[in-house]
Design a protein around this nucleic acid. Sequence first.
DNA 1: GTATGATTGAAACGTTCGTTTGAATCTTCG
DNA 2: CGAAGATTCAAACGAACGTTTCAATCATAC
Lengths: 239, 239
Amino acid sequence: MDTKVTTDNRDTRERILDAAEAAFMTCGYDGASMRQITGDASVNLAAGHYHFGSKEALFHAVLNRRLQVLNHERLRVLDELEAKADGAPLKASQILDAFFGTLLRMAVAHGERGRTFLRLIGRTLTEPAEFIRTVLSKEFAHVLERYKAALFRALPDVPKEEIVWRFHFMLGATSYAIAGIDTLRLVTDWETGEINNDDLERLLPRLMSFLLGGLRAPLPTTTPVPQPRGNGRNRRKKP
Amino acid sequence: MDTKVTTDNRDTRERILDAAEAAFMTCGYDGASMRQITGDASVNLAAGHYHFGSKEALFHAVLNRRLQVLNHERLRVLDELEAKADGAPLKASQILDAFFGTLLRMAVAHGERGRTFLRLIGRTLTEPAEFIRTVLSKEFAHVLERYKAALFRALPDVPKEEIVWRFHFMLGATSYAIAGIDTLRLVTDWETGEINNDDLERLLPRLMSFLLGGLRAPLPTTTPVPQPRGNGRNRRKKP
DNA sequence: GTATGATTGAAACGTTCGTTTGAATCTTCG
DNA sequence: CGAAGATTCAAACGAACGTTTCAATCATAC
């Protein structure tokens, strides 16, 4: 099951993986069909099921091929930082750079394929299907625990619950940004829906300062201003 | 086309709209089927096409029914703030509260239906289908122009381009948060995938301080640190 | 060379989807 | 009442989907 015997086996498998990665990125899980994927890969329709068993398993394989590398690198960078710190808490900026910066830098380093996967990740984080949630949860669990712990140590004055929420917000901002989703056509640069490496390298510092600003923002007032002003509440249709 | 003649016409139409709203929220546009929607609404399958013409048009109607109210209110609040300010620039916190706070407060005020629409909006902002992008773009264009202009005036020292990007990040953080998307199971509160009004009222101040912190963060260094450390670049496959 | 197992190919299966059809039913109004 | 139009209903259509089947082809080892 590990090392295959025949020659162009890997070719077919990887051609399917590459085509699937691009199709899932563009159309989402439901929107991409096995016929489109195998067609783009120039392989027979049945080859997809022969090599992966099902569409779900193919999606799983597409994600894992890159996620394992990414999350391994994230752990490695965090280990390195903590070793250098020698027991002292890390800076929040270091942690965010290790988590989000590693993601974006790896994408830049791998050219077009890296950018495709980046946008796939952004889109996948918003997929409604349950099995996708399960796959991601499993794949990210350990990494998230490590990074959450590092953030707790870095920001001892911020309640842990607040840090978790802000991590959640940061993931949202990031996945939205990297998915290239500009539904409201805010960002005028992306004319074609494409992202090039220059865009990506300019995105990282922008995103990082936004995330850092949000993460270190003053805590919300404990009294959450139930009705800020009189309006917007207890209102029915105009009589 | 405006005021219908028969009696329970509105009943059927609105039952379909409500069921569609819930279905699109849970399963996304592709995932929700006309059969599920009309079944949940206890109407005949053909009734959906009779009243709306197509699935796309139904989705359009679902969005517009609430978006028009929401965006009208957003403009009204902004007008009110600017009238009070009497020509002076608004504070960024006021603008964000008018844009994002209005969204969340209206959802809270409308109970379960409001929460359903809130999550639908969050999910819709990440839909891949092109026609959805077109619908949203049209519906939001005017509101976004007004709010962008207000932010430009509120933050004269921040380059406009940077503000647009940060608006983009804020939309991502918000839509991700309100969609109830917790793919990575970060937020332990949401056990059932449901959000109640208490969660929502606690979410608003948390989100607001995060967004404000991000919006007012120090600008990124103009030299975007091309290669942070030696690795991650100019790398090819291992030889 | 030939047997063996891995891979590919073309075709079909059953299901579900959005949509359409045409008759049946209900509502409205003269 | 009865004609007219609006609405509902059951049934079907064609297309697309994921998946399966089975024979054909290829690579490898004896």
